[in-house]
Amino acid sequence: MSRKPKYFDRRFKAELLHPKHWPTWIAIVILVVFGLMPAWLRDPIARTLAKLVKKIAKKPLRVARANLQACFPEKSEADIAQLLDDNIENFVMILLAQSELLIRSTANLRRRVELEGFEYVQQARDAGQPVIFIMPHVWGIEYAGLRLNVDLPMVSMAKAHRNKLFDWFNNRMRSSQGGNIYMREAGIRALLSELKNDNSFFYLPDEDLGPDKSVFAPFFATVKATLPVVGRLAAAGNAQVMPVKIGYDQKRRKYKLTVMPPIAPEQMQGKENEALALNRAVEQVISAYPEQYMWFLKVLRTRPPGEASIY
């Protein structure tokens, strides 16, 4: 068996020009055009398109509404409806802008993303430690990862897409600041190896990976199955664990990226404690910009024994 790192292949191949990929090429060209637009022109277009998305995204909206009702039972139907409207608007706005991460300069990335709290990262670096950044699935996560990669050696991990052209484009974007992108099947060992090579990375603890090895811990007004692996990974790789939040400010047309203080190692000793610490970190990040979280994901799919599915 090959022991080569399981990176995504970012080389351009002639097969990507096959006619079956032409619709994807058209979509990429459209995204590039939007990426080249100034935000003052692009954002109003996104708001208009968001109204169309709201009409056709019935199934994702049902999942998002179920998540919100479980997490925030105190919210009225009107409050949830407004949050969903804002969520769709931010999704379209950020999606249409994302190609700028590949086609525009690093200087543009610095201008678009204002970074706060980097002193926590610097303190870890001064101590000779890499960082495991904790961030749930938020719309601006690509901006967060690439902005930090400007000042910090980083790698990432992603699930392969069935569309090879989309895979190529997306991973060219994600690696535009020099970080390698691992395939998900590379596993935890690959990430541990990167920590030992002084590379930092993002860990997304909000994904529901099923009941196997997961621990239920409080999550807003409900409970969530969380996989407690970060504490052991950080200890083995001599890394610090820091939550990160990012939000798009529509008025200023900029992102605000904030690195939060590191989670104390003792808070993640034991699976139950770690699951609780991770869920608390995720709550903090989501609560900062609740309208910019990917609520359409089935993050509450796994339920405690005897409890019915919320979906």
Rank of each mutant, 00 (worst) to 15 (best):
M1E: 01
K6D: 02
K6C: 07
Y7M: 05
D9Q: 01
D9C: 10
R10K: 10
L16A: 03
L17S: 04
P19E: 01
K20C: 12
H21N: 14
T24G: 04
T24F: 06
I26K: 03
I26P: 06
I30W: 05
I30S: 01
F34N: 00
G35D: 00
M37T: 06
A39H: 09
W40S: 12
I56N: 00
L61R: 13
R62V: 14
Q69I: 14
C71I: 10
K75R: 15
E77R: 10
D79E: 13
D85E: 14
D86A: 15
I88P: 11
I88W: 08
I94R: 01
I94V: 13
Q98H: 11
Q98K: 09
L102T: 10
S105I: 14
S105D: 07
V113E: 00
E116K: 11
Q123E: 12
R125E: 14
R125C: 10
P130F: 10
P130R: 07
V138E: 00
Y143D: 06
L146D: 00
V150A: 04
D151C: 05
M154E: 00
S156D: 03
S156W: 01
S156I: 00
K159M: 08
K164H: 06
W168S: 02
N171R: 03
R172C: 14
M173S: 08
G179I: 06
G179C: 09
G187H: 09
R189E: 02
A190K: 01
L191M: 04
L192M: 10
S200Q: 04
L204G: 05
D206F: 09
D206A: 09
E207I: 15
E207Q: 15
D208C: 12
G210I: 07
P211C: 06
P211S: 12
D212P: 12
D212A: 13
K213V: 13
F216D: 03
F216Q: 04
F219G: 07
F219C: 04
T222G: 05
T222S: 02
T226P: 13
A236P: 15
N238M: 12
A239D: 01
M242S: 08
P243V: 04
Q250F: 10
K251N: 09
L257A: 04
T258M: 07
M260G: 09
M260L: 15
M260R: 08
M260V: 09
M260K: 05
E266Q: 14
Q269H: 12
K271A: 14
E272F: 13
E272P: 06
N273P: 07
N279W: 04
N279K: 03
R280T: 15
A281K: 03
Q284R: 08
V285E: 00
I286Y: 10
A288K: 02
A288Q: 05
Y289Q: 01
E291T: 12
W295S: 07
F296M: 15
L297Q: 03
T302D: 01
P304T: 12
S309K: 10
S309V: 09
Y311P: 10
Y311C: 09
